[in-house]
Design a protein around this nucleic acid. Structure first.
Lengths: 149, 149
DNA sequence: GTTTCATGTAACTTAGTTAGTTACGAATAA
DNA sequence: TTATTCGTAACTAACTAAGTTACATGAAAC
């Protein structure tokens, strides 16, 4: 799992979970999908459990399942549950007394607030169901082209 | 200079340069404003020179100046010249053959493209002149309140 | 022309972040 | 009671970016 790919890795995992709604998938299996370690998976999606996006169960037959229907899970919620920042730049003051810095931070914070609102709004309209639908489209296409050949 | 504060630090520097349009400021002076090292400053704003946002001159009386009027320099250009990414998450494929991954990346890339367009559009409407104006407002306010007390 | 000052840049060091790993306790089903 | 699986702490390794040192290049002042 590469740096900065927590969102896409998590989505990958979640689509697999949506594709197997009747059984729990283990951290081991999920880790296999994104070529990483089970502990990394558990650590990464721990926040999703707290947000109710997934549930986990221990012991025999245990593992991970979606907490609700895929069309009720938006990318905005997932991103937030991962603790991801949509905007990368920092606006903490390093010399609080400086009026120039105050002006810069004020403008940048305004922008950040508005930008975060915009991005979150857009992400809230994309659901896990959209991703699984896209996946199925690709899957069917391959099937058709295999037949054709 | 903290991590992830290259944009705000650079803006800080540029406002100081806009505030002294008649003389060149040295890396040493600029570094003082943001509490860092002259070499870090030179390295950070090297890209701005290539973009024509600032000019530099060597030797006696040398240093840095704005390349054009503050109202002709947008935050979008500055951010681009710094090589900053507006969106932090990566969408490189780690298992290119996987249809689930392809679907995830397709959706995420769509979002990223649209988001980058939106943010850039907004940043292109904020200029250095807006920042200096905000700074002057704060400066005058302090002046007034000092008088009042 | 020599001195002084300033940038340009390479090379190295240091600090911080995050993924990966190991280990083990707690919970649960067979 | 045993096998399985999560939860989590602790540690290691890899990577990134800032900070630092050093020195070559260029330009103004004398």
């Amino acid at each position: 799992m590469k740096r900065n790919s927590r969102l896409s890795s998590t989505l990958h995992i979640l689509v697999h979970m949506a594709d197997a709604p009747d059984r729990a998938l283990t951290s081991e299996q999920l880790a296999g999908f994104i070529h990483t370690n089970p502990v990394v998976v558990r650590r990464t999606i721990a926040g999703l459990r707290e947000a109710g996006i997934v549930t986990s169960s221990r012991g025999h037959g245990g593992g991970w399942q979606l907490g609700r229907a895929p069309d009720k899970i938006s990318l905005a919620e997932i991103s937030a549950a991962l603790g991801e920042t949509l905007l990368p730049f920092s606006t903490e003051s390093e010399s609080p007394g400086c009026l120039v810095e105050q002006a810069v931070i004020a403008v940048l914070d305004d922008f950040r607030l508005e930008a975060e609102r915009l991005l979150t709004e857009r992400l809230s309209h994309i659901t896990l169901a959209d991703l699984t639908a896209d996946f199925r489209r690709r899957y069917d296409l391959i099937g058709v082209s295999s037949h054709a050949v």
